[in-house]
């Protein structure tokens, strides 16, 4: 398998974006390679006009709809690659949305950018991630150089980014802060049997107004996270603004793989498949391990979520 090429492109104008994007896409199409462009609606329009007739051969998606959360985005990339795996090289131009995100969200997306170096390691994907210096903050642009081994300005060549960090070190830094302690009104219980995890979580979800399919999905996420963590454990549930949070804590057990649950299930069952499902269902899944044990914290949308 070809190694992945993962490059950042820090651009400051539409012109600079196109100077990278047009050759990157055109070269791929010329070589018969699959090309996926997932970026803002503004950049999709710019690129479409510049490509002219060639645009018809480009797979495209607006970033907002191509993986709402990091685990969904990583999964979407893996699936695109699997669907095109007969090709030696698969090109992806992937620009995340950074504006308006919470600090927690920004950290999660940086963490994923770094994690992609390991997750897509031997896929042969050539991924360029554009960063719009007109809108992203200095912190995000600096970390782009830490999460991408090289930078690219012309869509063809690269040079070392200079401050690339080992992904495990970078992710370790993202996970360094302890999770906030559960609030006093959290309900918690020690649980021995795995089928009692879903009963506890379902009951507590209903008590806090989450019902129907949403409660069922949260119960599945909690069950799968518990299956990954192992029994017995202590479960806790509480409500936050717009969210229902569920903590699962297993004393004495250290969960080690920080990227577990980012790769979608394949034909062979793996222990991380359940965690992957939990990450698809939930808005946030945080995993922490320390000397005392491991915690998986699930956050799903609360009962007042409006979907139109």
């Amino acid at each position: 398998m070809e190694p992945m090429i993962h490059q950042a492109c820090l651009y400051g104008s539409d012109q600079e974006f196109l100077e990278m994007a047009v050759p990157f896409v055109r070269d791929g199409l010329a070589d018969g390679e699959p090309v996926l462009v997932t970026t803002t609606s503004g950049n999709l329009e710019l690129l479409g006009e510049a490509l002219g007739g060639d645009a018809a051969q480009v797979d495209h998606a607006e970033t907002a709809y191509y993986g709402r959360r990091t685990a969904q985005r990583a999964t979407a990339f893996t699936r695109y690659w699997r669907r095109n795996s007969r090709h030696r090289r698969v090109r992806i131009l992937a620009e995340p949305v950074w504006q308006g995100r919470s600090a927690r969200d920004v950290l999660a997306w940086k963490r994923m950018e770094s994690g992609l170096n390991l997750l897509l390691d031997d896929t042969g994907i050539w991924m360029i991630c554009p960063y719009d210096l007109r809108s992203v903050g200095a912190g995000i642009a600096e970390d782009a150089l830490r999460t991408h081994p090289s930078v690219c300005a012309d869509g063809r060549t690269g040079r070392p980014s200079g401050s690339y960090a080992d992904p495990l070190d970078f992710i370790g830094g993202c996970d360094a802060a302890p999770l906030p302690a559960p609030p006093p009104d959290a309900t918690s219980a020690p649980i021995d049997e795995i089928n009692d995890v879903r009963r506890f979580v379902t009951d507590e979800a209903y008590r806090r107004g989450l019902a129907g399919e949403h409660a069922s999905m949260l119960a599945v996420a909690a069950h799968e996270a518990a299956r990954y963590l192992g029994m017995p454990l202590t479960a806790g549930v509480w409500a936050g603004f717009g969210a229902l949070i569920c903590d699962l804590r297993r004393p004495g057990k250290a969960v080690s793989d920080p990227l577990a649950g980012f790769r979608p299930p394949g034909p062979i069952e793996r222990s991380e498949d359940g965690l992957w499902l939990a990450r698809q269902i939930c808005d946030h899944v945080d995993v922490r391990a320390d000397a005392a044990g491991s915690t998986i914290r699930l956050q799903a949308a609360g009962p007042r979520l409006q979907t139109g």
Binding site: V220, L277, Q280, I281
Partner: peptide, 13 residues
């Protein structure tokens, strides 16, 4: 198939 199971099957692909 219950609705949330339909959703799960779709999520997994």
């Amino acid at each position: 198939v219950p609705e949330h199971v339909v959703q799960l099957i779709g999520l997994i692909g």
